[in-house]
Design a protein around this nucleic acid. Sequence first.
DNA 1: ACAAAAGTGTTGATTGTACACCCATGC
DNA 2: GCATGGGTGTACAATCAACACTTTTGT
Lengths: 222, 222
Amino acid sequence: MATISAETDYIQPAVTADTALFSVRGGELVALTVRREREPFAGWWALPGDYIRAEEALDDCAARALAEQTGLDAIYLEQLYTFASHYPGRWGRVFNVAYFALVPFAAVSPRNDENIAWQALSRLPRLAFNHEDILASARRRLAAKIEYSALALGLLPEVFTLAEVQAVYEAIKGERLDKRNFRRALLALDQLEVTGEKRQSGAHRPARLYRLREPSNLGIIG
Amino acid sequence: MATISAETDYIQPAVTADTALFSVRGGELVALTVRREREPFAGWWALPGDYIRAEEALDDCAARALAEQTGLDAIYLEQLYTFASHYPGRWGRVFNVAYFALVPFAAVSPRNDENIAWQALSRLPRLAFNHEDILASARRRLAAKIEYSALALGLLPEVFTLAEVQAVYEAIKGERLDKRNFRRALLALDQLEVTGEKRQSGAHRPARLYRLREPSNLGIIG
DNA sequence: ACAAAAGTGTTGATTGTACACCCATGC
DNA sequence: GCATGGGTGTACAATCAACACTTTTGT
């Protein structure tokens, strides 16, 4: 490298992994936030995240921060983008490696804590640092990925009705979908199987319950 | 953040931006490498890259390293993935923010230098660090993106024949394409215009020359 | 005249989209 | 018996994939 800068030139920044964790509650897309205790941005809502440890992998750091701060274990975790920020003064240079994660709705709840909250994406409060940008970016990725993967099935509990799946897709895409076309396409993925059970919920015909055939391969379909 | 680690816990790593720069030469997909002068991996081929400067943006760092080390200015540059490596001893923790870039073939040449070389992807030498992984990852991204964007047009010189465009796509996808279907789909993007000129190259009918209509919007089509 | 790449349309298969009614249940 | 969400099929449009011959040039 002919023109590399002098060694003293490169800086010693901090690196964090921060995760945009999505779920669906009551037909709305929601993201998990935790309240910051320390400066900077003490008292603000922020995405769960932490400084990376000395020998830790990035993915492990994201998963650890999530578990420590919220008690949740994501069913899907994927690196999203790295942001470089500069906070003058004692905080200096910070790199945020952003992650994007999903948990099944209603399957597990975060630790009951005033300082942990699901935020509806449609009524998002101001977030610390650049976390609103991270969340927006993660949301675009999620919307893009559900078009060609079975990823959204990761937002579902163990057994579910097809109407629930459709509600998840509608929450993510922000539009209504045709019931017959949706069900046809969904079942064509060949990822669901009927349990044989039904669920009664109101004064109408009970819905068939489904589960994932292979709990593993949510990534790309095919 | 209830359980955040003590401040002394987080580490002070080095951060680099490294770029997988693609082009097409003689119908083959090629990537640019530079020979490293210093340890670690002195003498090995590596992707162009550098440590980030104190107030530099990541994108700027990638572009600067490319310009300084190869004299090239990429027509397209996009962040790809961040890798965390650990090199025991004095090198310590390094984060590589990988970039993915394109330059037109034959449009500009890198500085003439023994220590700069285009490598055919089909005959890639061993690379320093994890740069083979970065290159493989960049190649997957390129292959995925050309399916739904006009990105590959960035690999072309200012004027070009449709056969040349097809050669670029075939090099990236690693398969032969149908001439008629390819041309129909390409022209349907509505990004090309005929120059009126023709290019004679051998004992056969000369080919019409095209250029990009809007040199700007290679990203997503539509 | 022949070799070599340029250029050009049609057809069938697949996929996507729009759309309306009957079913099972609780009250 | 009526209100409620569950469940199903068909027809048309759009897109994709396969395929072969004529044109222009140099030798």
